[in-house]
Simulated assay, not measured.
Amino acid sequence: MASYVFVFVVLVLASTKAFASDPSQLQDFCVADNTTKVFVNGVVCKNPAHVNADDFFFSGLDKPFDTKNALGSKVTPVNVNNLFGLNTLGISLVRVDFARHGLNPPHTHPRATEVLTLLQGKLYVGFVTSNPPKLFSKILNKGDVFVFPEGLIHFQLNIGRENAVAIAALSSQNPGVITVADAVLGSSPAIKDNVLEKAFQVDKKVVDYLKSQFWTDSN
């Protein structure tokens, strides 16, 4: 009886995992056809007869990207939108460049867990759990790896004396990103002041000042 219970639990966990990430492919590949006018939950497949090696290839992540912005960081994604062969494979990646003191601000990926590897520099990283909020943070050095669970707010800050570079893998072909400050204070149309006043326990002048800032997205 114990063995039957064990098998049942394994099957339940496996089925749960199947519904917790991008759908699995039902063929060798389904290269994205981003020219189609059909809207589906994902991307329509390109005709396999027209697929070639370039559909599975992306070049250029070896070069530093411009971090001359208010945040001092730049996120360069490689996902189904620019590497069509990722469609249905449930994975993507980003390169993140940091100037000195550069910040990849608090944000979430609604559809993906992220695993980040630091290639150069020194980062302070962390994520916050759902209520009650608890911060899990570490200082990363070259070669260190840190995981940000799916959907949780997380960040990275360059605390070293040089530029920093990281590569992160994400468990979705199109993980999405919601930058907290941009979403709350820079949305269009704007969230009403009285909502933000009460949520942050500040007066209208503070809310108006924050809304007046130029909100920068490094993604």
Rank of each mutant, 00 (worst) to 15 (best):
N158Q: 04
F127K: 01
L26T: 08
L83V: 01
L196T: 00
L71R: 01
P105S: 11
G160A: 12
R161Y: 09
F29H: 10
A2R: 08
A169H: 04
Y4P: 06
H107F: 12
F98L: 04
F98W: 15
D66H: 14
V202H: 01
F56G: 01
D97V: 09
A169S: 03
Y209Q: 12
A20G: 03
L93Q: 02
P133N: 08
A169V: 08
H109V: 07
V147C: 11
L89W: 11
D208E: 13
L152Q: 04
P189G: 07
G143F: 15
L86T: 00
N79K: 00
V78I: 10
P23I: 03
S24T: 08
T216I: 02
E162F: 14
K17Q: 14
M1R: 06
K205M: 08
V43I: 10
A168T: 07
A181F: 11
I167P: 00
T129M: 03
T216E: 09
F155C: 09
N194A: 13
G42M: 05
N34C: 06
G72P: 00
N194H: 13
G186D: 08
F65V: 03
A99T: 02
L13E: 15
N47D: 15
A53H: 14
Q25F: 15
D144Y: 02
Q173H: 05
G143D: 15
C30M: 05
D97K: 05
D144G: 01
P77T: 11
V147L: 10
N158L: 12
N41Q: 15
G160V: 04
G160C: 09
L103G: 07
T76H: 04
Q120N: 13
K138H: 09
G90W: 05
P189V: 07
P105L: 12
H107E: 07
S172D: 06
I153S: 05
D217V: 12
P64M: 06
P175H: 11
P48Q: 07
Q213A: 13
P175Y: 15
P23W: 14
K37R: 13
L118V: 13
A70N: 12
S218A: 15
A168H: 06
H154V: 05
S21I: 11
A166N: 04
S130V: 03
Q120T: 11
G126C: 05
G176M: 05
K204G: 11
F200Y: 14
V96C: 05
G85M: 02
L196Q: 01
S15I: 13
V202Q: 02
